[in-house]
Design a protein around this nucleic acid. Structure first.
Lengths: 258, 258
DNA sequence: GCACAACTCTGTACGTTGTACGAGAATAAG
DNA sequence: CTTATTCTCGTACAACGTACAGAGTTGTGC
């Protein structure tokens, strides 16, 4: 069982958020010395999210973590939504710069692997949808690096963007399914096997759920489930998907180049 | 600005949820006649989500919609999380059965297009992560149909599952970015163009955000943004990605078949 | 030195959420 | 009729984001 909600605040003015993202707010001229900085708040929030969930990032808990009252966070951050944006850009800052001199295929592979690793370091990134206002410096840099991987191989601008969206989207979905599962196991205290142990007899008692009605599902589902849980390859879907996607891109590139 | 939260309740016993999904709960022998059915609750919840967001699906609002007190919903549904699971399976029931006799490529294309359409009819599906307990009859059927499209073309079981995950993942990500944007526009009351109009001067005042620092981003981003918002092709990323992915799968299939 | 403006910090409070709990009413079985 | 079962509902609680008003702190202009 699960539930997810997506909430957006159409807050209006993006000015403040952008200034915070780019770190260009003028330092205060008067008033008491601030106890904290925006960066402190972001770091505390990231630490909470890393240790648990994005759910754990509540204004009250972040404030507690910093030894400060909840409301004083609003001095450093307009609200929770903008804090999440700052967290995203902060995390994107961890992505390494691309090695120069790689071919597009190796470059895209490196990008995909770096993002895969990033998602595993910060699983909460998969619980947050980026929107237009999350465009901070590190997110910009990320996009720039991604484009650099496919620059000058014969694609037009729209194709370059689409190729990147394809690869990064693949990483997101495969990492999500891998990590969603892990999170669910942690939250429910049941491994997949334990869950099925409990669920199987219930399903077995339902005529409509018989394996005869779902011959392919029951066969393939079991094989895939075993492969999925195999300790030796946690990222099978990722590597498989990446290989296919790169092959597909290769077909386009060689068609454009001939 | 945006924020998303993912919450899961590790509720423990999956029995009740599975019984509800498969519609096999024994009818009550005593007690007053129920005013509603579980299906009524699910339909009302779907209607609310369709009209607005998944956010709009609160127990209180669903109850209001049905002319019933909030707490009486718990007669028909264990909790909100399970209601979301029921909604998901309900929506999957709208997917048409595959036309027989298609080749794998046409079959996967049809599947992808049907899911693309489904996401546009029920955008809230993209705001909800399916988890193991959402395995209702329609979701099972969906999986079975997907597998049927790639059965017997030379892939092993794990590859079949991975291919399907690849295609459906692509539909999810492209539909999400397309619909997230639409939702954001609705929520904020600003189109992308209007937002950039407001954001651009702020960014322009930031030296570090100069176009010179992000030459590819600014060029490609603008081209992609225009293409993305072009009225004539709302699903460009989807169709582009699908073509690449299918090409990539084709490479694997022909390698297996030779 | 002094008044004032700017700024930080905090306590209180409101509306919203999911849902635990228990009381009341309705129905069918014995 | 009695009793077990089931539906419905009002109340209540903890947690959330954050609006608001006030108190305290610092720099600027005179």
């Amino acid at each position: 069982m699960a539930g997810v909600r997506t909430q957006d605040n159409g807050d209006g003015d993006p000015r403040r958020a952008i200034e915070l993202l780019w770190g260009v707010s003028a330092p205060p001229r008067r008033g008491p010395k601030p106890k904290l900085t925006t960066a402190d708040v972001v770091r505390a929030a990231v630490a909470l999210a890393d240790a648990d969930d994005i759910e754990a990032v509540t204004m009250r808990r972040v404030a507690d973590h910093l030894g400060v009252s909840p409301m004083s966070l609003y001095t450093y951050v307009p609200g929770r939504a903008e804090l999440l944006d700052l967290m995203i850009d902060h995390a994107h800052g961890e992505l390494p710069a691309p090695e120069p001199g790689l071919g597009w295929r190796a470059a895209l592979t490196a990008i995909a692997e770096n993002q895969w690793a990033l998602f595993h370091r910060h699983p909460w990134l998969l619980q947050v949808t980026t929107s237009r206002s999350a465009l901070g410096p590190h997110t910009f840099t990320k996009y720039e690096h991604e484009l650099r991987a496919v620059e000058g191989i014969g694609l037009d601008d729209v194709e370059m963007d689409a190729v990147i969206a394809l690869v990064t989207g693949l990483v997101r979905t495969t990492a999500r399914s891998s990590l969603d599962n892990a999170r669910l196991v942690r939250a429910s205290g049941m491994t997949d096997a334990q869950w099925w142990e409990r669920a199987a007899p219930v399903l077995a008692g339902i005529p409509a759920a018989d394996a005869a009605h779902y011959p392919l599902s029951s066969r393939v589902g079991q094989a895939a489930g075993e492969a999925h849980n195999a300790a030796e390859n946690p990222g099978h879907a990722f590597r498989f998907g990446l290989a296919r996607v790169l092959d597909g891109i290769e077909a386009l590139v060689s068609q454009r180049q001939q």
